[in-house]
Every structure is written in C-alpha cells, then in structure tokens.
Computed example of a mutant assay.
Amino acid sequence: MNTILEHLTGMHVMTDQVIAMDLLISAKSGVRNYAAAVTEVGTPEVKAVLMKHLDEVIDMHEQITMYLMEKGFYHPWNPQEQLQLDLQNMQTALSLPS
C-alpha cells in the first residue's frame, strides 16, 4: 500500500503494530529456543554463551513488550482490553479490499 493511502486509511499504525507483534512473537520463540538449548548443552563454555544470548533475547522481549504497551497495541495484563483490540484489528483486516 502506498504511504499516502496508509495514512489516509490509518493503516500505517496497523502496519507498525503488525511488525512489532511479529517481532514480539519471534523474541518469544528465541527465549524458548535458547532456554531449551541451555539445558541440552555439554560444555560450560557453550552454556555461558547461550546464557548470554538468552539474557539478551529476554531483554529484547521486554523492550518490545514495553513499546507495544506504550503505543496501546498490547494489553498483557487486561484480557478484556486485549480482546477488544484483537476484535478491532480483525474488523480492520476484514474490511481491507482483497
């Protein structure tokens, strides 16, 4: 979609939200993968490297979560607000031209 149309339709915000949520999901996956790898590793040196990466991806997850919350895109502690937001996003997606 062209930038002018995105701003006219309000889709530029939706795009930011979609990108940030995708990044959050990837960070969550990274946390799970590093945590699993730490439990399987055979040497203390490799374990230390994986633990460092795990700490970094946890920090990244927190930063992304805070960004989404500040922008009003994510309400992890209020399921009703999150459900409303999800329903609004669904309606927006359904109303887009095919």
Rank of each mutant, 00 (worst) to 15 (best):
M14C: 13
W77L: 13
M90R: 11
K47S: 06
I58M: 09
Y67H: 02
L83G: 09
T65P: 01
K47H: 03
V18E: 14
N78K: 01
V38S: 04
Q91M: 06
M11F: 14
I19D: 08
T65D: 02
E56R: 05
A27M: 04
T15N: 15
E62L: 07
E56W: 01
L94N: 12
L68C: 01
G10N: 05
V31K: 04
G10S: 02
P79R: 08
N89W: 00
A48T: 10
A48V: 06
K52E: 09
Q88F: 03
K47F: 02
A48H: 10
M21R: 15
L68A: 02
G30L: 01
E62T: 12
Q17V: 08
S98Y: 13
M14T: 15
V49N: 11
I64F: 01
K71V: 03
A93D: 08
M66Y: 09
D86L: 04
T15C: 09
A48P: 07
L96V: 05
Q91F: 02
V46S: 12
M69E: 13
H75N: 03
G30W: 01
V46C: 07
E40W: 02
S26E: 08
S95Y: 05
T43E: 07
L8E: 09
E56K: 06
M51Q: 15
L96E: 12
V46Y: 12
I19Q: 13
L68S: 01
R32H: 12
W77V: 11
N33S: 15
V13E: 14
A37L: 11
L85V: 00
G10V: 03
H12T: 06
L94F: 10
G10R: 04
E40D: 09
M51C: 14
I64N: 04
L83E: 14
P44T: 02
S26D: 07
Q88T: 05
T3D: 15
M14A: 14
